[in-house]
Amino acid sequence: MTTATAHAPRRTGVGILPVGRVARAWARNLTKEYGTGATAVTALDDVDVDLEEGRLTAIMGPSGSGKSTLMHCLAGLDRPTSGTVVVGDHDVTRMRQRHLTQLRRTGLGFVFQSFNLVPTLTAEENITLPLDIARERVDRAWFDEVVEAVGLRDRLSHRPGELSGGQQQRVACARALVTRPALVLADEPTGNLDSRSAGEVLGFLRRSVDELGQTVAMVTHDPRAASYAHRVLFLADGRLADVLENPTAETVLERLGALTAGTSPAAVTA
């Protein structure tokens, strides 16, 4: 396994953090092409991004902008055509399948849009599943803290079928956090939820950053969801188009409007 420094090599670009702020995970010159020759499609085109430690970063962009591809490359679920991805101390792009599997057990946490839970296991079993797979002991104190934070104490023995959509996503969040991963990746975590449930899940993700000190990256196309983040990365046509710090729903919407209008602002808003 290749180890890399937690600090990204210095370079300038919209996605790269200024000096003094620490990246928990980063990608440099990330390019992903699907297919070859005339039919080749470039999903990511030389992207540089940093995901700041102890912060919630949102990744936005229109359909086909490459935001999910970026997330899959960050997670080691997909191999980039070229470029480097480092999560914590691990160079994901150079890891073998077996090590990636091990990384997914405890180094990364996932929350997907839907179908996050194994239907035959209870909520508690689902939460501890990555630890059970890794055959690691459950840290009860941390477990309790996480469960308390998601507010599911009285739902632990229920099966997914007996939980509401919002509750299911909160269980998924708890599962993503229970291993204290270097990075939690959430792929449209509120895409299938009503606005109240979505608010609960997003509030929890933000709290996990503010109170529990986790690092979270979230792909979304919902400006309201993005407004929960500390920082928003905008992708368009496989390139990093823009970055917004301390967003609100309005500013996000504004930037998105600008992106879809095809006029990419030159300045980086600080």
Partner: peptide, 8 residues
């Protein structure tokens, strides 16, 4: 999903 959370 199981593979994503680390099942070999």
């Amino acid at each position: 999903l199981l593979r994503a959370v680390g099942l070999g």
